[in-house]
Nucleic acid binder design. Structure first.
Lengths: 197, 197
DNA sequence: GTCTATAGTAGGATAGAC
DNA sequence: GTCTATCCTACTATAGAC
């Protein structure tokens, strides 16, 4: 393991991953050919295979980058004071997602490919489980702080409610990707209005 | 157009579509090869191409069959008396979906491929829009009957709430397909407990 | 209508020079 | 590490016999 090369390798991988993401956005993961990733990156086949063992490895790496950082949003919010009500979290998550990947449709592709590709499914699974954990913790804390609910009871409530918050985000993703005239703002307003607090 | 052949053709198409669905369940739409559909159907390439112009035509036909009949569930429920509360609808829709296609994961594949395949997206789009229409109508009716809400006001409420009902179903689909230990029953109970009525 | 056999092609991955 | 050129597999769809 050479010493100068390490940060160079990382930078190159970043470069390739970002080019791949741009390409994936247009045609999805599997439907994008290596030729397109190669063209988008401006590099060559040999260069790319020097950094990734296969196209699947690129997909998995890009997928991790895409979904990896939404959990941080929640954890960061849990540090703020006063705590925002849980139904406002989907808006934060959606906004973070849009900032990170531009088009939520890529999440749909990720889930769809996860059905048959175990490596992709692992990525998708991890992020949902970690997100759920963060949301449960946040929601429990919120019940305790806001309504003085005892911790055990608050945990139960939070465990019931967190999957609904996740669904709110997932529903946003599906509907905005598939229905052209989907009104995201009205949707998020409904979420905040009707989900429990 | 021969007269004996017509119902025969329909039966053959059904047969092929069902075999294709079994194959798609294993590997998704695009990742399933014609060879697998051919093997699963017990027919030959020539026979299949006699009934479908292309693999894409099979995908679109199968997709339509999969999603086509959930709207009927809602319309049927709208005829019952007394009307069940809207938050119980996701349970009905999920149950109908599971009965029809066995594994909800195929819906994820459908959405995922819809991102890049216009024909598939059209199918997915149509079903969401029609389902939303049916849910809005049902929910409006429910508000009028149960709370005596005036029709215009009930329509507004219903338009706000229907997307949340759709999200509840979509969230079920995503979470049950991706998270192995997802507790569907607890999830649906939460939906019924927390969504507005 | 259905079969077998195959044409035609796209795409992932590698070899070898620099 | 990166390039060019290419191998080779796997796939969709068709041709032609029955």
């Amino acid at each position: 393991m050479p010493k100068v090369t390490e940060e160079y390798r990382v930078a190159r991988r970043d470069e390739i991953a970002e080019a791949a993401l741009r390409a994936f956005r247009r045609k999805g993961f599997q439907a994008t050919s290596m030729a397109e990733i190669i063209a988008e990156s401006g590099l060559s086949a040999g260069a790319i295979y020097g950094h990734y063992a296969s196209k699947d490895a690129i997909i998995v790496d890009v997928a991790s980058r895409v979904v990896g950082n939404r959990i941080l949003d929640v954890e960061r919010l849990a540090q703020t004071e006063p705590l925002a009500p849980p139904p406002t979290l989907p808006r934060v998550l959606v906004a973070g997602m849009l900032r990170a990947i531009g088009n939520p449709a890529i999440m749909l592709q990720l889930w769809g490919e996860g059905v048959t590709d175990p490596a992709v499914r692992t990525v998708a699974h991890d992020v949902i489980v970690r997100l759920r954990g963060a949301l449960v913790e946040y929601t429990s804390l919120w019940h305790q702080r806001t309504h003085g609910t005892p911790p055990e009871e608050a945990d139960v409530l939070a465990a019931e409610q967190a999957p609904l918050l996740i669904s709110a985000v997932q529903g946003f993703v599906v509907q905005s990707a598939i229905v052209p005239d989907f009104d995201g703002e009205a949707y998020l307003a409904s979420v905040e209005k009707y989900l429990p607090r």
